[in-house]
Measured scan of single mutants.
Amino acid sequence: ERVRARYDYEAQNEDELSFKKGDIITVLEKDDGWWKGRNGKEGLFPSNYVEELE
């Protein structure tokens, strides 16, 4: 599954994923509120910062 970033997100910890608004992220795992994904790097990000691609 792929999602698009709705906002910029700056990683707060080294296991998190940074991205810019409009970036496409491949979702690897979904957990409550935090998803694991890849966009060149791999890490956790808040699920409310992304939207599913149509």
Rank of each mutant, 00 (worst) to 15 (best):
S18R: 03
E1A: 12
E42T: 14
G43N: 01
V3N: 04
D8R: 01
E10F: 12
K41T: 11
G37P: 01
I24E: 05
E16K: 01
Y9S: 02
E54T: 14
E54M: 12
K41R: 14
K30I: 06
G43H: 00
E1M: 15
V27L: 09
A5Q: 02
V50A: 07
N48Y: 13
V3Q: 03
F19M: 08
F19W: 00
Y49H: 09
R2C: 14
F19D: 00
D32N: 15
G40Y: 10
E54I: 13
L17K: 02
W35M: 08
G33E: 12
I25D: 00
R6V: 14
R38T: 11
Q12F: 07
E29T: 11
K30H: 06
S47I: 08
E16W: 03
Y49K: 07
E1N: 14
K21M: 11
D23A: 07
K36Y: 14
P46L: 09
Q12W: 05
W34I: 07
N13H: 11
Y7P: 01
R2F: 14
D8F: 03
N39R: 12
D31Q: 15
Y49M: 12
W35R: 00
D32S: 12
E14A: 14
V3E: 03
A11N: 03
N13V: 06
W35H: 00
K36G: 00
K30W: 07
W34T: 05
K20L: 09
F45C: 02
E42K: 06
Y49V: 08
Y7G: 06
E14Q: 12
V27E: 00
S18E: 04
G22Y: 05
E10M: 12
V3L: 06
N48R: 12
D23E: 10
G37D: 00
N39W: 10
F19T: 00
N13F: 07
F19L: 08
N39E: 04
E1T: 14
N13G: 11
I25S: 00
K30Q: 07
R38P: 00
W34H: 06
A5W: 00
D15W: 15
R4Q: 07
L44T: 11
R4P: 01
V3S: 03
P46A: 05
G33D: 11
N48S: 15
E29W: 15
I24W: 09
G43E: 02
L28H: 03
E16S: 03
F45L: 03
K20F: 09
D31P: 10
R4S: 04
G22A: 03
D32Q: 13
S18M: 03
R2H: 11
E14I: 11
E52L: 13
F45N: 01
D8G: 07
E29N: 12
N48G: 12
W35F: 08
K21E: 09
L28E: 04
E10T: 14
G22F: 04
R4C: 08
E1H: 15
Q12G: 08
K20W: 07
E14L: 09
I24V: 10
Y49Q: 06
S18V: 02
T26V: 14
V27R: 01
E16V: 00
K36R: 15
D8H: 06
G43A: 02
G40I: 12
A5K: 03
D31N: 15
Y49N: 05
P46H: 06
P46I: 03
E1K: 13
G37M: 01
